[in-house]
Write a protein that binds this DNA or RNA. Structure first.
Lengths: 122, 122
DNA sequence: GATACTAGTATACTTTTGTATAGTAAAATA
DNA sequence: TATTTTACTATACAAAAGTATACTAGTATC
C-alpha cells in the first residue's frame, strides 16, 4: 500500500469514528455509574433516602468507608449535593442534582435493555 | 418501635424497592458494558470491524490478551458470536448478536446523558 | 455517668482488573 | 528459505477497587 492509499484509508477511518465529544460524553457517563456501589446509592437517593445512616441501612452490605468514598466522588461529579443543616444535633443530607435525577431515565433504559436481552437469550 | 410498627415499616420499604427482576436486568446490563474495553470493542463491531486483527488495529492500545479475554466474555454473554470460516487460510469473524446491535440505543442514551450533564455543569 | 446514635475516618488487607512482554502454530508472501 | 500475517496463549507483574475491623467526636438518652 502506497502513501496515497494509506491517506485515503485513514480518511475513511476518520469518517467512521464518532466525534471526540461523544467519546468524552460516554466516558463521563461510565465514570458516573461504574463501580459496585454507584447505582445502588443513586437508586436509594432517587427513593428519597438522603442521610448517611439511611443509605447505610438501605444499601445491603455497604461499609461506611465505601459509602463515604462514593458520596464524595458523586459530589465531585455534580450528581449529589451535600447539605449541612446547622441544627443541634447537626443534620446532613445528600440530595441528587438535576443531572443526578435525570439518571433515572438512563437507568430505565438500562433495565429495559437487560429485560429484552434476557428474553432474547432464553 | 414495636413488632407491628417494624412490620409496617418493612412493608413500606418493600413497596419502595424495585422488583427483583429489575435489579437483575440492571446488573446484567452493567456486566455487559463495564470494564475498560467492552464499549470500545462493541463500538468497533458496530462500525463493522469484525476480525481480531481489525479490532486490535482499531482500538488504540488494547493488547491481544485483553481483546481475547473480552471477546470471550462478550461471547459468553451472547453479545457477540465467533464464526470460523473453514477457508485456507482460516477466517474468523466476530459479529454482534441482535442484543449486541441493540446496545447502540443504550450507548446513544448514555452519550446524550453525558452531553446534557456537561452542559448542566458548565 | 454509661450507653447509644449520627456521621463519618484510619489502617491494613484481599480481590479484581488491567499491563508488559514474549511466544506459538499455520499459512502466505518475498 | 526467511519473513510476515493472522489469531491467538502464557507468565509475571502492577494498579485499581473493594473489604474488614476498629476507631473518633459530638450529642442525646437512660
Amino acid at each position: 500500500m502506497n502513501d496515497f492509499q494509506e491517506l485515503i484509508r485513514k480518511e475513511e477511518e476518520q469518517q467512521q469514528r464518532c466525534p471526540h465529544s461523544y467519546v468524552l460524553a460516554l466516558t463521563d457517563t461510565m465514570n458516573v455509574i461504574s463501580g459496585k456501589w454507584k447505582l445502588p446509592i443513586i437508586a436509594s437517593l432517587l427513593r428519597g433516602k438522603n442521610r448517611f445512616k439511611d443509605l447505610l441501612d438501605n444499601i445491603e452490605k455497604i461499609t461506611p468507608r465505601m459509602l463515604s468514598k462514593e458520596l464524595k466522588e458523586l459530589e465531585m461529579n455534580s450528581i449529589v449535593v451535600r447539605e449541612v443543616y446547622d441544627q443541634t444535633p447537626v443534620l446532613i443530607t445528600y440530595q441528587l442534582t438535576e443531572s443526578g435525577k435525570s439518571l433515572a431515565n438512563l437507568i430505565d433504559t438500562m433495565i429495559n435493555w437487560g429485560l429484552t436481552h434476557r428474553s432474547n437469550v432464553l
